[in-house]
Each structure stands twice: as C-alpha cells, then as structure tokens.
Design a protein around this nucleic acid. Structure first.
Lengths: 190, 190
DNA sequence: CGTATATGTCAACGGCTGTTGGCCATTACG
DNA sequence: CGTAATGGCCAACAGCCGTTGACATATACG
C-alpha cells in the first residue's frame, strides 16, 4: 500500500492535490470561465485529460476546489465587547491565507453553482456560529446578513476590485474601523 | 435630416439604442464573458454583424454600455446629520433603477476593463462629491473607501449574491441600519 | 429616375473551449 | 518474470466564440 488508501494507485494523490492547488489559484485569479482546464493542467504540470479522469468535468473540479472551512472560532469564549474585532481579524486571516474564498467570490458573480455554494457557507457556517450571540432569535438572521454585507464588501474592495484607499489600509486599521460596525449590527437595538 | 444629426443615416440611432439596452441587460445578468454578442444581438432583434458595425468590437460595446453617471446629489445642501441616510437612499435608488451598475460590478470581477472603469467612477464621481464633507484632507480617501466597502457590500449581497436575509430587508430598514455606519465612517474620529 | 449610401442579412473563418478515446510507460503483484 | 492495472500523453471531436467580408435591400438625394 503506497500512500493513503482510497485508490489502490501509486502517486495519484500528489497529482490530484497539484491540480486542486492550481485550480484554486486560477479560479481565484480569473473567475470560473477564464480559468481554463488547459491552463490549470499546464500549471499543475500535467495533461488536461488527467483533470477529467480525476474530477469528471469542470463543474466537479470547481466543486472540489471550492470546498472549504471558514474555521470560525468559538465565539462564546471571547469577551462580549471584543467579538467585533475578533470576527474582523479572523476574516482577514482566512481571506489572506486561503485562495478558496476569493475563488468562491469571483466565480459566484457569474456562476450559479458558486453562488449556491457561497449561500451554503453563509447558512451552514456563519449563521450557526454567530447566531448564539444575538439575544432575540427574530432579528438574528438580519443582523448576520448585515455583517456579511460589511465583511464581503471589504473583501470585494480590498482583494478583488483593489480600490487604492482600501488596499492601503493596514490590518490594524481595518479592524479599528470595521469592528464597531460589526459590533453594532450584532448587538445594537433594532 | 431624419432624426438627430450625428450619422446622416435614417434609423441607426434606434437600433444602436436597442443594442445598448440589450447589452446592459445581459452584462448585468450574466457578466462579461457569458453575455455573448450573438445573444445580445438576438435580444435586440438584429444580426450580430450589426453590433460590430456600430461598436467595433465587444470591448468597445462594453465600454459604451458601461458608461454611466452616479448622479450624486449636492451633499453640501443636506443637513449634517442626515448625510448618511441621503447617501444610502440615493445608492439604493441608482442601483435599482439602472442595470449599468450591476453590469459594471458583475463584469469587474473578471474583466480588467470593467474594474478599471469602476475605479474611475469611484475616483471621479464618488471622491469629489463626498470629500468636501470630510474635515481633514488626510483621512478623506480612507473614509470614502470605507463607505465604498459598505455600499458595494450591500449591493453585492442584495443584488448579486441574493443572500436571503439581505434581500428581504425593505428599503427603510436598509437605510436605518446602514446610515449610522456611513455617517460614522465620514465623520467619526480617527 | 438613377445612383450612392446607409441598413441589414448570410455564410464562413480561425481560434479556443470542454471533453473523449486510444496509445505508451511505469509500477505493483502473482 | 509476466501480467494486469495504473498514471500519463496525444490527437481529435463537436460546439461556441468574436469577427469578417460579400451580398441584398431600402432609403435619400442629384
């Protein structure tokens, strides 16, 4: 038994990982339609046909590349007043250390599968983790939706559109400005 | 002299307008690469070759379709404390009454020309109109950049990604929640 | 009326796309 | 060692894309 165990094969896992990495990078940099299977394969150093063998088709390749975990921390453990800065800081970290989010956002704008996935991430990862912080269940969804508008708006302007004044903010400044907004959306009166 | 005066022709302006309208609609709904010239032409009821004759190529067609004016009101005239709600309300209006902004945002994510145009709109329309409200020149660009993150984030979540909790907010609620954020970005201490 | 010009259609081109099936090399295993 | 399977490459397909040029029609004007 060579490596792991799923296929009986030899080094397929290595190649598969290389394809996934190249796919994430190009989906993140160019969006769904411009990230060609041929380009991704060339970047991974193999033939386009291998991509099809391992992932079936482009849609499934994207689904595999867009799989990811936001890794939200346990928010019940942080002090009430700092939840805003913790959330902003965590999002910045995740956004800068993982191409997947950028791939998801860039693709979601023109590719149905991606927007569905993004909504799923919101519903299954953000909502359950943040909702307990809101006292009244009734407005929780609204509050978390508002948080999403500010967070995704920052990501859009900073990493995708690259608006100069937003790009030149340093990490601390982003947290200093955005944290009170997030805090207010989550806790302020209706 | 048949209608206006620019070409000597007969009804070319009508067709040109039909093409532009169809282009805007499809760019807004599908992004740059999925909005094909063939589809746009079919929607305008003419042959694809006409698009080329009137606009040269797809890039120039997009440039023509993405031309637009944000029509920001004179902010010096509104009371100091209501500038937030005026801005949010105006953006919502513009966003819902004109496909162009959505076309610009959808295309900007994967099409260089579009992101350049969007940055230009920010620099030549938003900055000059909003900057006078900021007392210190030094932080004005930063403050307006922050406003952009919240505004574009709302547009992204509401009109492009269609996150359910954000879509179901009514106009008044959006203003009620976002106005204080905008107000703080523009006027609060560093 | 005759002719030039604008308006529009048609068919085709080269290029790029996702996808497929067949062929070679290498390795694992009896 | 021989055989089967796995990893990988190559060439080709059908389809769609932007774009082009030749050709038909209708209008404007001398």
């Amino acid at each position: 038994m060579p490596q792991k165990g799923k296929p009986t094969g030899r080094r397929s896992e290595t190649t598969k990982a290389a394809i996934l990495a190249a796919a994430r990078q190009h989906f993140a940099a160019s969006g769904y339609e411009r990230a060609t299977i041929r380009i991704i394969a060339a970047d991974a150093g193999i033939d386009p046909a291998m991509v099809m063998r391992y992932f079936g088709n482009k849609e499934k390749l994207f689904a595999a590349a867009a799989e990811f975990d936001l890794r939200l921390p346990d928010l019940a453990a942080v002090p009430r007043g700092t939840v805003g800065s913790v959330l902003v800081g965590h999002f910045l970290d995740r956004w800068e250390s993982d191409d997947t989010l950028q791939a998801l956002l860039r693709a979601a704008v023109s590719y149905k599968v991606a927007v569905t996935r993004l909504r799923a991430v919101f519903a299954t990862q953000v909502m359950p983790a943040v909702a307990p912080l809101c006292k009244d269940r009734a407005t929780a969804a609204t509050r978390i939706g508002l948080v999403a508008t500010q967070m995704l708006g920052m990501a859009l302007c900073r990493y995708v559109l690259r608006l100069p004044p937003v790009v030149s903010l340093d990490r601390a400044a982003v947290i200093r400005w955005l944290a009170p907004t997030i805090q207010r959306y989550l806790t302020a009166g209706p």
